[in-house]
Design a protein around this nucleic acid. Structure first.
Lengths: 138, 138
DNA sequence: CTACCGTCTGGAGTTGCCTCCAAGTCAAGC
DNA sequence: GCTTGACTTGGAGGCAACTCCAGACGGTAG
């Protein structure tokens, strides 16, 4: 176990979050309480860092803060919350899969539009308006 | 061409947006100005509806309003903006592809965690903490 | 004619998620 | 011992994207 215990500034740099965001996440229960030194300064352990990295990843994928705070709270309540936690993960997984599917469809659509621009299929705005009527291009 | 010209309420119902959102989108230039009746009431044509549907799709995929307003403004300026418009689409397409890639990775991670919950690989919180140290689970 | 529903406008309020600030404490270097 | 820089707190501020509201107008049904 290497260089344990980092300051909030180091953690912020490591994970590309601001110190304000890290404190905010802790305050709202998105990260379990971080240990402190005698003089009340936060000392992030490896485990704390793992939480930060996990939360950052989930937030980045659009998982709502509320679901994550709930998960963290249940985690801290121990093994009895095993099932509930799993359900949260499944719900979030399904929502994420749904969003990915929608975004893939939109990606296709964008690629299609770009191809049309490339091929100069749309030489004038009037013609463009006409194709709109078919609900295909814009 | 079937039932042309819908009221804002009909369009809202058709596309699952609120009338407030539709008016908001028009006000900020996200949808070209919609034609009005003599009594100033909005009358959405098929083309207007196509814009609404397009914008809804793009917003749903996380494309920023700013990029879309710029695209709409260029579109209204005519064919001379062909290249600029294409560039916007390409930028947005690339950003979207990036987000999808990240989300897919997060989806994998969630599935992995759920599998672990299923297999009861994590029977107690202490053990869970141990696996955290390897940066694998949380 | 009146009631009612949907629309109109401009502007204020809300939500989610940070981000910034003032005022103070602490450890280290000069 | 004083300055510097990173940390502390509670609370205010900010931004994107809506969402709601008051007050007015229009068309239709009874």
């Amino acid at each position: 176990m290497g260089g344990n215990f980092m300051t909030i500034g180091e953690v912020a740099r490591k994970y590309g979050l601001s110190v304000d965001t890290l404190r905010y996440y802790e305050r709202i229960g998105l990260i379990p309480n971080v240990h402190r030194s005698e003089s009340r300064i936060r000392n992030y352990s490896d485990e704390d860092c793992n939480w930060v990295e996990f939360i950052k990843c989930m937030r980045n994928a659009g998982v709502q803060i509320e679901a994550l705070t709930e998960y963290v709270a249940l985690f801290q309540q121990g093994e009895s919350t095993h099932f509930e936690r799993k359900q949260i993960l499944i719900t979030q997984r399904d929502q994420l899969a749904q969003r990915i599917a929608e975004m893939k469809a939109t990606l296709k659509r964008l690629n299609f539009k770009i191809d049309n621009y490339d091929q100069h299929i749309v030489p004038a705005q009037k013609k463009l308006k006409k194709t709109n009527k078919k609900g295909v291009l814009l």
